[in-house]
């Protein structure tokens, strides 16, 4: 009231303060990644120092050594297969069920919807042991399939597809029928291509979830036969936690695909996660 002249400058100060605060926040959140990078390229002398050395020395020996410590290629291959197969399974089951629940009237449809929603209420932690028992009886222990099948259908994906298919005009279905399409041809050529944003969302969320999967593969994998990167990384730290440089390099190695995907699909990824929360 009294200092109307001071107001604009006060606003300016506030704006700069906000920018400074944002810079600090961003730096704080990125610091762990940065420090891991510094550690991974540190020389031996620069690791155990106090205060910690935050300037990289660009010694890549630990990156080279990481690859001699464990068959990372094999583990990455496992993780890629598991993640890829899960994405495909979730997409296929999600598209089919979502389509049926959106567009195919059948007796029991409401029951199926209710059953699916009820499935969301089951905390995965609580059924860890029976899941293991089921996997044992299906001979899925210590296998790649065992890390895909339990995640092969996702209720959230089903509902996302259902919501989307419901928005498609009936005329598209009619038109494609006139063009000679059967229901699966309609799905393949019309509905699914139009659902590309949903496909993308489901793919991204499944990718993030599967690449980070830990407890289940920890439990069901034993030897090298089906071990994914996260489990391998966990063991590596367990075998000798004092090899910080190699561990930092290995951690960054398993983080790399996440970083790449994040940089490429940032916006879509964030909105997917936001959408995931709304269900």
């Amino acid at each position: 009231m009294t200092n109307t002249a001071a107001r604009p400058s006060g606003r300016l100060v506030r704006r700069w303060a906000r920018f400074a605060l944002m810079a600090v926040v961003a730096a704080a959140f990125l610091l762990p990644f940065y420090w891991a990078l510094v550690l991974s390229v540190a020389t031996r002398a620069n690791v155990f120092t106090m205060p910690p050395d935050l300037v990289p020395s660009w010694d890549f020996i630990s990156w080279a050594r990481v690859f001699t410590l464990a068959p990372w290629g094999l583990y990455f291959l496992h993780s890629v297969i598991i993640t890829g197969a899960t994405i495909i399974a979730v997409l296929v089951t999600g598209v089919l069920a979502g389509y049926a629940l959106a567009e195919v009237p059948f007796r029991g449809r409401e029951v199926v919807m209710g059953v699916l929603l009820a499935g969301l209420m089951v905390p995965p932690e609580a059924i860890l042991i029976p899941n293991y028992v089921v996997a044992y009886h299906l001979h899925l222990l210590n296998s790649l399939a065992g890390q895909v099948v339990p995640f092969g259908a996702n209720v959230f994906a089903v509902f996302l597809f259902r919501q989307f298919f419901k928005t498609l005009p009936v005329e598209l279905w009619d038109a494609s029928r006139m063009d000679g399409a059967r229901w699966w041809q309609y799905l393949r050529h019309i509905a699914v291509p139009l659902a590309r944003p949903v496909v993308m969302t489901v793919t991204l969320l499944t990718f993030v979830a599967q690449w980070s999967q830990f407890q289940w593969p920890l439990i069901i994998t034993q030897g090298n036969g089906a071990r994914p990167v996260e489990v391998a990384l966990s063991y590596l730290q367990g075998f000798d936690g004092s090899h910080w440089r190699e561990l930092a390099a290995a951690s960054l190695l398993t983080l790399a695909p996440i970083f790449v995907v994040f940089l490429l699909t940032q916006r879509h990824l964030i909105s997917s996660v936001a959408g995931r929360a709304q269900i």
């Binding site: 464990a70 222990l141 210590n142 439990i219 069901i220 034993q222 030897g223 090298n224 036969g225 063991y235």
Partner: peptide, 20 residues
Amino acid sequence: QTVTPASAKALAAVQAGDPP
């Protein structure tokens, strides 16, 4: 050689029907 926490994992592998 497979590097793994063998004490715990080998028994699980027996249960899984896939031991070393």
